[in-house]
């Protein structure tokens, strides 16, 4: 059979389903993508550009210095201490925040009267203004403050919390945890409630105790949430600085000067915007690396049903 000249050839249309879908996909992500390019990537590029310059804001000088700021970074004697403080702060914050959030979530998952009241109260610091929250705590943590007053009642002489290197770090971490643990708590609570109840019943039939149920059923099933919250918490921990500014101003010595606070000091207090930008790039690289590592590890630690 020949193809009759008069019969129109069935042309494959340009807008195939795949192409339509791809176009739709791009349209759907366009607002977000344009936003990220405009408000994140482009400014980040500018920060990198600044990091190659010596920029004195007040004198209005802006000179290209090449890698000088990066050499300064390597030679900065304060930086190892700052990185160590950041590591301690973030590790402490993540461990404490995650375990407290999980404990609270398990408690609040119980069938008890008035549990919603407790939920709300545990969550309440999240909505309290950061300024008020930090002020109250700096008041409680004073040498003659409320906490040492309580300790005195049981015959213990408390340390000078914010002025002793070891306890200053602990205090800053704990204050931050109480403020924000409510968010993770809710995420965990949601995950716990998403665990099918039949699984527990089956386990009970098999004679598994509470603790065993928790370890064998609950933990694996909420592991995706654990991964997600740990990423968010680590990233968040590297961005905390207002509380540190109020509670310790990075002291005593440099013990609570974490990287973002150091960056803030260099750029906004000392007016070294060039060097501050270099520290921003360092911070960004660290956060990106950490997240990458966690994301890669997800396959090993996260349990999926299928």
């Amino acid at each position: 059979m020949t193809i009759a000249a008069g019969t129109p050839r069935r042309k494959r249309p340009f807008w195939t389903i795949e192409r339509r879908d791809a176009a739709a996909g791009y349209l759907f992500i366009a607002p977000q993508l344009i936003g990220i390019v405009t408000f994140v990537l482009f400014p980040l590029g500018l920060v990198f550009y600044y990091s190659l310059h010596e920029w004195n804001v007040l004198a209005n000088t802006f000179n290209f210095v090449g890698a000088a700021n990066y050499q300064m970074l390597l030679a900065d004697k304060a930086l190892p201490q700052v990185l160590l403080s950041s590591a301690i702060f973030s590790a402490g914050l993540v461990i404490l925040n995650m375990s407290l959030a999980l404990l609270l979530a398990v408690l609040l998952d119980q069938k008890l009267k008035g549990i919603t009241v407790f939920r709300t109260l545990f969550f309440s610091p999240v909505v309290v203004s950061l300024v008020a929250w930090t002020i109250v705590w700096s008041f409680l943590l004073q040498n003659n403050g409320g906490i040492n007053g309580l300790l005195q009642l049981i015959g213990v002489e408390g340390p000078n919390w914010l002025r002793t290197p070891a306890t200053a770090m602990i205090s800053v971490v704990v204050v931050q945890v109480f403020k924000n643990v409510g968010l993770n708590m809710i995420l965990f609570l949601a995950a716990l409630q998403g665990v099918p109840k039949e699984l527990y019943e089956a386990a009970r039939v098999d004679g598994a105790g509470r603790f065993k149920q928790f370890r064998r059923i609950t933990l694996p099933l909420i592991s995706p949430t654990i991964l997600l919250t740990s990423i968010i918490t680590i990233v968040g921990s590297l961005q905390v600085f207002a509380q540190i500014a109020v509670l310790t101003q990075g002291g005593p010595g440099m013990t609570t000067t974490v990287l973002v606070y150091y960056l803030y000091q260099q750029a906004f207090q000392f007016h070294f915007f060039g060097y501050g930008s270099t520290l921003s790039i360092l911070l960004f690289v660290i956060v990106a690396l950490l997240t990458f590592v966690q994301w890669q590890m997800r396959k090993r630690i996260v349990f999926y049903e299928n």
Binding site: A24, I29, I36, L41, L44, V260, Y264, A267, V287
Partner: peptide
């Protein structure tokens, strides 16, 4: 399904990682 969707998603995720102090001046 559209080309580069995973790569673009990774780029978008960068937004999660940048403290606001970093980009406030630009």
């Amino acid at each position: 399904k559209f080309p580069f969707s995973n790569a673009i998603f990774m780029i978008v995720l960068l937004g999660l990682l940048i403290p606001s102090e970093v980009t406030i001046v630009p």
